Amino acid sequence: MKRGSYMLGLKKLFPDKMDLNKLIFRIGEVSKMLNVSTRQLRYWEKKGYIESIRDEKGSSRVFNMENFTRVSLIKYYLDKGFTLVRANEITQTNMSNMAYLRRFVMYAFQDIEMIENQPAINLGYFDDEKTSILYGFIDKNDEVKYRVIKNKEEDR
């Protein structure tokens, strides 16, 4: 199986210490992106379900990535028919899962490489001896597949 660099330096675009909470969204942007009125967002903030921060001028409400995710999840559960209180409870539970998922992806992702003329995500070593690498890819039917490949660098 042929391995090769697909995108040079891709790892550098996703540094280990990337702080997604440095992404800031204004209340109007959140409203448009998630189809939630600014009035609803202010109400949710008043109830303590979400938390905004003030921009540098101290005037506009802005949201970090964590609260953007909260708004997104609350909206999702409201659209599924849950009450606001229940949507918030479920969101609280899922926020720790989302943080774990983000942390896992941050540490698992190594690179994107070509395997048999198809992009594959290098998810790191599969074994403690570091002789095999786990790859994930999406096949032509949009199904996620995994493959373990012997580490070619071990042969050198």
Rank of each mutant, 00 (worst) to 15 (best):
D111M: 07
M106L: 13
M98T: 09
T83C: 04
R102M: 09
T83A: 00
N88T: 01
T93Y: 03
N88A: 07
T83H: 04
N88I: 02
M95D: 01
I112P: 07
F104C: 12
A99F: 12
M98F: 15
M106A: 14
E113V: 04
K80Y: 05
G81N: 01
T93H: 06
Q92T: 14
L84M: 13
R86P: 02
R86Q: 14
N88S: 05
T93K: 04
R102D: 10
T93Q: 06
Y100T: 13
M98E: 10
L84V: 14
K80Q: 12
N97Q: 11
E116N: 13
A99G: 11
R102Q: 14
T91I: 04
E89M: 02
L84A: 13
S96M: 12
N94K: 08
F82Y: 15
K80F: 09
N117E: 05
E116G: 00
Y107H: 14
Y100A: 11
L84N: 06
D111V: 08
T91Y: 01
N94M: 12
L84K: 09
E89R: 05
L84D: 14
N97V: 09
L84H: 03
L101K: 11
M98K: 07
A87T: 05
Y107L: 10
F104D: 10
T93V: 08
M95A: 03
T91A: 02
F109A: 04
T83N: 06
Y107M: 09
F109W: 11
T83S: 15
D111R: 06
D111F: 07
S96Q: 14
